[in-house]
Amino acid sequence: MRNPFQEFQTVSFKKKNLPLSRIVRAKQDVMAHILEGYLNLVEAEAKDFVWLVEQSRVLKTYSEAVKYVQSLNYDQDDIEEFCGELDGSTKVPYVIEGPAGIYVSALVNQLSDDRVVLRLKDYQKKFHLLGYRLPVGKTLILQGDIGDFTGTGLAGGCLVVEGSAGNWCGAGMMQGEIRVAGTAGWKTGEWMKAGEIHVEGWIRGVGQNILGGRIYEQGKLVSPQHRGSQ
């Protein structure tokens, strides 16, 4: 066959990669690494058959998660995309909700951004343990209703829930602030040591063992309660 492109033989070509495809490829690489870290974490945790929210277990899982996450180069969008993968993708073969939330928290806490916004309202799944150990100087805004143990062990950060929180919100928090636009569930602030929880809606139940800090319900202080106000 005659070469219909003969006149272009002398053109020294340079294969140009479109920026979009380069960006997509980079994003895919990042997500693959994030998923790999999560699956390693879950594999280690699944050995125990049942995953319970115990302080030592949570701490251990968090430490493992931080180890994976530290070496990754990612941004807020990647975290949000990872939440999407947890919500319904086939890339995540099994989701254990405790480690999943801790892993997301580790991703948030290790990110260099001071302010992180996660849009979760479109997901079917309720994410638990978000905002775990959120450090000083960091603000995490969660858009949508979220699951249990939100802001557990909060370490000085500011956690804003633009929706409702489940049970054990702010459990064991050490310092910082949690603001919930909707309602909060049972055991809110259980074992909290310091900091403040503001719930604009109602609180189903405040924790029985609160060591310090303040809890406000619809602007009114509900913990600690003043003597004689009961």
Binding site: N3, F5, F8, V11, K15
Partner: peptide, 12 residues
């Protein structure tokens, strides 16, 4: 032009 140049080389 790059695409045409590459096509030329592929034919060759």
């Amino acid at each position: 032009k790059n695409a045409l140049a590459v096509a030329c080389r592929i034919v060759e």
